[in-house]
Design a protein around this nucleic acid. Structure first.
Length: 801
DNA sequence: CCGATACGCATTTTT
DNA sequence: TGCGTATCGG
């Protein structure tokens, strides 16, 4: 059976089949981009004789990488092969390379990844140390500058050596940026840590300065594919070039019209000029949109044609014409919320569709509130995306910080975070002294803690004792980390640091949430161990765990399909998704487009953002704006967004908000000055809402989420509802343990064709059993997840028939 | 060294 | 407005 069948259009087919040279696939919205990419990779393996480990496929999100892996496994009907693909995010793949080559870049193999919060915290301490005014040197803008430099592959040394930078920074009233950058980099090195940008910067340096290493990877990656190329920054662009410049077996896919991340360093020129860099590059344009109606596609086209810099393309739809895009003018933001709510109610009744068929998209997160309120009051279910991710919550970060210290005690940020949490009488002054002392001796804080007298750390006796105790505590965990798996260590950390005592002290709602999050975290560690063991992977230590979670956000695990809720999210986060009905709200000047957009370039990006929003819709798209809106506590008057007039009027129809209010329009008319009263009237409900909302958006660990995608009834049989931390686990020891609780006759009963029910993967059919004894493996085809290979020794399941 | 109050300051966020 | 951080009194 061939990979490519008649379901592909000529352009898609050509893009898949062309494998002899560089290619650029311009994939319009909804044009089957992922399908082309996954089939192309399958094609390379099946028809072109590539081994999976010779293919490098880079994405921006773990979610995208995981989805593609799954789809390739389906296409090839083979789980195993996919595991050998070098497919992942830029960061995860390069991190893997950097760890392997760590000696060459002067880091240990266990270096830490600093997330944005760590980075900011370090910058803040540096700015303070340098006695700079933190109003002129705001951490966010300093971070921005440094990040920009790194994305441009400019190292700290190069930055300060180039006088032009000084001149620019002078003009920006921040002449010390170079010095901050330099110190920051040095501190990262002594802490044996890298931030996200460093992963790219060091990868580039590694390849650029070590020709033998570069050759090695060039040899390994015989074909390179990149998804969402319009979102690459200069560093990513050049790394791809480093890896492909000779053989040029490279295929990049993207849509310049959906480039919306320039504020993160994405450079649209990478895709616009790709074909100039790779001479002889073939360009394939996927122009048929399979997602949306003609009206939506044409409207989006008419909008985007107002942009100057773009690759010419002609996106079209062969679906029905569809309804015109409806524009609603509302009096106030609150009324906008009600209008949208009622519209959803009405359509849902008329079309008999689901809540999950609706999305409300806005430019800024702050806009979500009025829609939440409107929906809540009407008892309509919704889910808000955005906000803190699981791993950004304080309690989770605290535990993780202890774990980080365990594999890299030099990690300054982790140490600062937990040295006095839970409180053990080591205050800010003491910490400053330690930092000062460490800086003076050019060693890490941990080194100073190890031998305080040697480095002349002057603290009171009582303080010295406390420091000694902290040092001993961490040392104990370091020992434990050598011997035990993450789960065991995680439990120990929560208990023995006193975090548990702190958080379980009382059951205030906030504490309840923290408890749940920690239970979730520790469960996630357990799941991590179990899953790996079942798959025959013995690497279940903290190091492996941290490597994985440091580059993971919990948005990766998709919304479970069983929750039927209205989606509320920013336009940015909606990229790549689709909904039957889309409401794009707050279409006002200075909001969408944002008031921050000053240059033509900025404005074009805002327009692309609007383009992304419109093209999320499959059937109906609604636009709305409000004449008045509360911003930062005061009333502002707004005017209709210029973007609405950018759309060809043939695809638009206006409706006044009055007409839509089916019942009692008068009750709903909201005069801005009435608002204060309204809020007070709603108070009790408003308070309730907060509770409910936290329940709605309660975080869960990516692990337990992604590895338990079907939390349906079968799984529940195995899961006691007891507190997770005390949950009995078979994974108690990193040494090979016997799955004691599984009775021998159960194992005996397994055979090809039998149905089994797995604790977390659900129901599946046994397709093959190989090996014997401890190494016995079974291939199970799970109803919801497809095929998986499990080591019978560890797998937790029962045979059904 | 820790908790409570004032101030100020606000896009978007895949890693 | 509403949150996060800086500063002050105990």
């Amino acid at each position: 059976m061939s990979i490519i069948n008649e379901s592909f259009n000529p352009a898609q087919k050509a893009a898949i089949e062309y494998c002899d040279g560089p290619s650029l696939v311009i994939a319009g919205a909804g044009s089957g981009k992922t399908r082309v990419l996954t089939h192309k990779i399958s094609y390379l393996i099946k028809e072109k004789g590539y081994n999976p480990w010779e293919i490098l496929a880079l994405t921006f999100t773990n979610k995208a990488a995981n989805e593609m892996k799954g789809r390739i496994a389906d296409i090839l009907d083979d789980e195993e092969t996919v595991r050998y693909l070098w497919m992942g995010t830029f960061h995860s793949v390069f991190l893997r390379i950097l760890r392997a080559e760590h000696e060459l870049i002067g880091f240990s193999g266990n270096f830490t990844i600093y997330d944005t919060a760590d980075t900011k915290s370090l910058l803040k301490t540096i700015i303070k140390e340098m006695a700079l005014d933190d109003k002129t040197y705001k951490t966010s803008s300093v971070l921005n500058q440094i990040s920009k430099a790194k994305n441009q592959l400019v190292t700290a040394k190069e930055y300060v050596d180039n006088p032009a930078n000084y001149t620019t920074d002078m003009r920006a009233k921040m002449p010390m940026i170079g010095e901050i950058y330099k110190r920051y980099s040095q501190r990262c090195i002594t802490s044996d840590a890298m931030d996200f940008d460093d992963i790219l910067l060091y990868t580039y340096k590694l390849l650029n300065e070590h020709e033998d290493v570069r050759r090695k990877y060039v040899e390994r990656f015989r074909y390179v594919l990149v998804d969402e190329y319009q979102d690459t920054n200069f560093a990513q662009h050049l790394i791809v070039w480093q890896l492909t410049k000779e053989r040029q077996h490279v295929c990049v896919v993207g849509d310049d019209a959906q480039s919306i991340y320039s504020f993160r360093g994405a450079n649209i020129d990478n895709i616009l000029k790709f074909k100039d860099l790779y001479s002889g590059c073939k360009v394939f344009k996927l122009e048929q949109n399979y997602r949306s109606t003609k009206v939506i596609v044409n409207a989006a086209n008419s909008l985007i044609s107002k942009n100057k810099s773009q690759i010419q393309k002609d996106v079209f739809s062969e679906k029905e014409t569809g309804d015109l895009i409806k524009i609603t003018e509302a009096y106030s933001d609150i009324e906008e919320g009600q209008v949208v709510m009622r519209q959803i109610e009405q359509i849902k009744r008329a079309d008999n569709c689901e809540y999950s068929d609706f999305a409300i998209l806005y430019r800024t997160n702050a806009q979500s509130r009025v829609f939440e309120e409107a929906l809540r009051k009407n008892g309509m279910p919704y889910r808000i995306y955005g906000g803190l991710s699981f791993y950004q919550r304080k309690e989770v970060k605290d535990v993780i910080a202890y774990m980080r210290l365990t594999i890299n005690p030099n990690d300054e940020e982790a140490l600062k975070r937990v040295i006095n949490y839970p409180m053990r009488g080591i205050g800010a002054t003491t910490v400053s002294k330690i930092i000062e002392c460490a800086n003076a001796n050019a060693v890490s804080l941990w080194t100073v803690l190890g031998e305080p007298e040697k480095y002349g750390l002057g603290v009171a006796k009582a303080t010295a004792t406390r420091l000694g105790m902290f040092h001993a505590l961490i040392s104990k965990f370091i020992d434990m980390a050598q011997k035990e798996n993450v789960y065991v260590l995680g439990k120990a950390v929560v208990q023995e640091t006193g975090i548990a005592a702190d958080i379980y002290a009382d059951n205030t709602p906030e504490n309840r949430a923290r408890q749940e999050n920690l239970e979730e975290l520790v469960n996630g560690m357990n799941d991590f161990c179990e899953t790996r063991l079942e798959e025959g992977n013995q690497n279940i230590g903290v190091g492996e765990y941290l490597s994985e979670v440091s580059l993971v956000s919990d948005l990766d695990s998709d919304k479970s399909d069983d929750d039927n809720k209205i989606t509320l999210m920013t336009v940015h986060s909606s990229k790549g998704l689709e909904f039957k009905n889309v409401f794009i709200v707050g279409l006002e000047e200075n909001l969408f487009p944002s008031s921050m957009a000053q240059t033509v370039r900025d404005m074009e990006e805002e327009r692309r953002l609007f383009y992304v929003a419109i093209t999320r819709a499959e059937r109906c798209c609604f636009l709305s704006y409000a004449k008045t809106r509360y911003r930062y506590g005061n009333l502002e008057f707004g005017t209709k967004s210029r973007f609405i007039s950018d759309i060809d009027t043939r695809y638009l129809t206006s409706q006044s908000s009055m007409r839509t209010s089916s019942r009692g329009a008068n009750d709903d008319v909201e005069l801005p000055w009435k608002r204060r009263k309204q809020v007070i009237d709603d108070m009790p409900e408003y308070l309730n809402r907060n509770e409910d909302r936290s329940a709605d958006t309660r975080m869960s660990s990516p692990f337990s989420k992604s590895f338990t995608p079907n939390v349906s009834k079968p799984a529940a049989k195995f899961e006691p509802i007891s507190p997770a931390i005390r949950r009995v686990s078979k994974v108690t020891d990193s040494s090979v343990a016997h799955a004691a609780s599984k009775s021998p006759d159960e194992s005996l009963k397994i055979a090809v064709g039998k149905h089994i029910e797995h604790q977390r993967f659900g129901v599946g059919v046994v397709e093959a059993v190989e090996g014997s004894g401890d190494g016995q493996k079974a291939t199970i085809n799970f109803t919801n997840l497809g095929k998986k290979q499990l080591l019978l020794k560890f797998a937790k399941f029962r045979v059904l028939d």
